[in-house]
Computed example of a mutant assay.
Amino acid sequence: MEQTTKKARFDLSTDKSLKSMLSKFGSLLGLLILCVILSFASDQFLTFKNIMNIANQSALNSIISVGMLLTIITAGIDLSVGAMLALSICVMGVLTSKYHVNPFLALLICLSVGAFLGFLNGIMLTKMKLPHPFISTLAMKNVARGLALIVTAASPISGFSKSVQFLGSEKIGSVPVSFILVIVVFIGFHIFLTRTAQGRYIYAVGGNPEAAKLSGVNVPRTLVMVYTISGIMSALCGIVLVGRVNAAFPLAGLDYDADAIAACIIGGASFMGGSGTVWGTLIGAMIMAVLRNGLNLLSVPADYQTVAIGLVIIGAVYVDVLRNQAQKKAKAVPTSNTSAQTTSA
């Protein structure tokens, strides 16, 4: 009997270890499996040129997703990232084309506009006591998109200088500058979230805001900071987009919020808050880019690609639901065991 019990315990621990490994590296495993499938489906997939193309394609979603990640870690969401991107680059476009503002100053103003819009999202959430960031960011989505249309008279602006286009159009060797920027940004955010007090505060607010408040964390200030950063990353993504297409247009970034949310959830973040990593988010963005690239190589029509991406998003959210249910059960088991031991005593 004792040997059977020991064996059961050993199997249980092994099972937990396996679940832990799958939880940590499941998205990476999914990316590798997807790459293997596509490499057999198309002989062009594993070419160096195509891999660099995927790196370039993933840059936009990666940059905007890391800002979205912070909001999701706090159990929030930012539906306005695409609209903030559009307004930021449209303001920059008007300044450079109509008022001939110095390109470097225009870039700083672009980032400042994104930061200000994100700051307003945080203020609406914390000071105006709106019930959920869904409300404040949805309102900002409409306001920013409308202002972008007004500022540009609903017309695209083109003809940017090379200094403005640098991040989105240039390469160092064969590697796109945009993807090098992604790596630098993600290293910076990894250090921020794992090595600084503010990063730990973000996880604490998402895990349990009341406990964080009792521990001395300034919850409103942390939330305002998170949404401000999300605005900055939206504007930075816009700068890369302008470099890629040499144009600023008011309808830019229409579906970027959905893609960013999908990248975060696929990468292991949870809508419940308190979890998520920058590298998981990068893998999630890469999965989205690899899937789109592979479908293009296989000549799948754009309509069917949209359906495929939608199914991936549903699957990612469902996995998040299952993950949360498993965590709740894991927390309930020790409590049940403790109660049983107390009763028997």
Rank of each mutant, 00 (worst) to 15 (best):
M1Q: 03
D11V: 13
S20T: 10
S23L: 09
S23W: 02
K24T: 15
F25K: 10
G26D: 05
L29K: 08
L29A: 13
I37A: 12
I37E: 08
F40W: 15
S42D: 05
D43K: 15
T47Q: 11
T47L: 09
K49W: 13
K49S: 10
I54C: 08
I54T: 14
N56D: 15
S62R: 00
I63T: 01
S65H: 01
L69H: 05
V81G: 00
G82C: 01
A83V: 07
I89M: 08
S97Y: 09
L107S: 04
F116L: 11
I123Q: 05
K127M: 14
K129Y: 12
K129S: 03
L130M: 12
I135Y: 02
I135V: 12
K141E: 04
N142H: 11
V143L: 07
V143G: 06
A144K: 00
K162P: 11
K162A: 14
Q165G: 02
L167R: 01
S169D: 03
S169F: 05
E170V: 02
F179K: 03
L181M: 10
L193R: 04
L193H: 04
T194Q: 11
G206Q: 01
E210V: 03
G216K: 11
V226N: 05
I229K: 00
S234G: 02
C237V: 06
V240K: 00
A252G: 08
A252E: 12
A252M: 15
I261A: 10
I261N: 02
A262D: 04
S270D: 01
G274A: 07
T277E: 06
L282N: 01
G284Y: 01
G284Q: 02
G284V: 01
M288S: 11
L298E: 11
P301K: 07
Y304F: 13
Y304W: 13
V312P: 06
I313P: 09
V317E: 02
Y318R: 10
V319Y: 10
Q327M: 05
A332C: 07
P334N: 15
P334Y: 14
T335A: 14
T338R: 15
T338L: 14
T342I: 13
T342H: 05
